[in-house]
Amino acid sequence: MKILAYDNFKPGVTLDDLRPYLRDEVSNVWRLWKAGIVRENYARADVGGVIIVFELASVEEAMRYTDDFPLSKAGLLEWHFIAFDAPLPLEFLFDPTVDIANPGTGR
């Protein structure tokens, strides 16, 4: 399953508070990316922070990873999680006569 995790800086936290941890934070996420645990990683456009998409079995497992991040251990972040999975195969909703062949193949 995919787990979307996004963080918020705790009240009063500034970029100067984060700076000493950023190199280790980024290295940690990169290791998880190379291991296939982190699938996507984005900077938030609305506020400071990140969005990480994990490929894991549960939110609890994602929480164990985020709890181990240097910024989390320093008490600078709050994390929020959304679990999502593949939708119901849509062809089950269609009449069996509806063409569900691969687009562009004509088959």
Rank of each mutant, 00 (worst) to 15 (best):
E78G: 04
W33P: 00
L22A: 05
E91S: 02
N8G: 07
P11Y: 10
R19G: 12
V53H: 04
L4P: 01
L22Y: 04
T97E: 13
D46S: 09
A35K: 01
S58Y: 02
Y42V: 05
D85S: 15
M63P: 09
A45C: 10
V26I: 15
V98G: 15
A62R: 08
R44K: 15
L76R: 11
W79Q: 08
I100P: 00
V13M: 00
A35H: 02
L88I: 09
F84D: 00
L71S: 13
G75Y: 08
P87E: 04
Y6P: 03
A45I: 09
M1R: 03
V29R: 09
I51A: 12
R39F: 00
M1F: 06
P20K: 05
N102A: 14
N8I: 09
L18K: 12
P89C: 08
V26M: 07
W79R: 11
R23K: 15
L90D: 09
K2W: 10
I3E: 00
E40P: 07
I100H: 12
A101T: 07
I52S: 06
P87D: 04
L32R: 03
A35G: 02
G49R: 01
I3Y: 00
Y65T: 03
F84P: 03
G36T: 00
L88H: 07
A57Q: 14
D7I: 06
Y42E: 06
P89T: 05
R107Q: 11
F94N: 06
V26H: 04
Y65H: 15
H80S: 14
H80I: 07
V29E: 06
I51Y: 14
G36A: 01
D46L: 05
V13W: 02
L4C: 06
Y21M: 01
R107I: 10
L88K: 13
R107E: 06
S72T: 14
G36H: 00
Y6I: 00
M1G: 05
L18A: 13
A101L: 08
L88V: 11
P89D: 09
D99F: 07
D85R: 08
W30E: 15
A83I: 01
A57G: 14
Y21C: 06
T14P: 08
A86Y: 12
E55H: 12
L90N: 09
S72C: 12
V29T: 14
L90G: 12
G12E: 09
I51W: 06
I52D: 06
I51Q: 07
P96E: 04
T66V: 11
E40F: 03
I82Q: 05
L4A: 07
L18G: 13
G49F: 08
A101C: 10
E25F: 00
N41W: 10
A57Y: 05
P20Y: 03
K2Y: 13
I3M: 04
F69C: 03
W79F: 01
L4K: 05
F92A: 07
A45E: 09
F84K: 02
A74H: 06
L76S: 06
W79I: 12
N8A: 13
H80W: 11
L15T: 03
F54G: 07
D68W: 08
R31I: 02
R44D: 02
T66N: 01
L76Y: 02
P96K: 11
N41Q: 01
D46I: 13
S58V: 03
G48L: 15
V29P: 01
P103Y: 11
T105V: 10
F9N: 11
G12N: 01
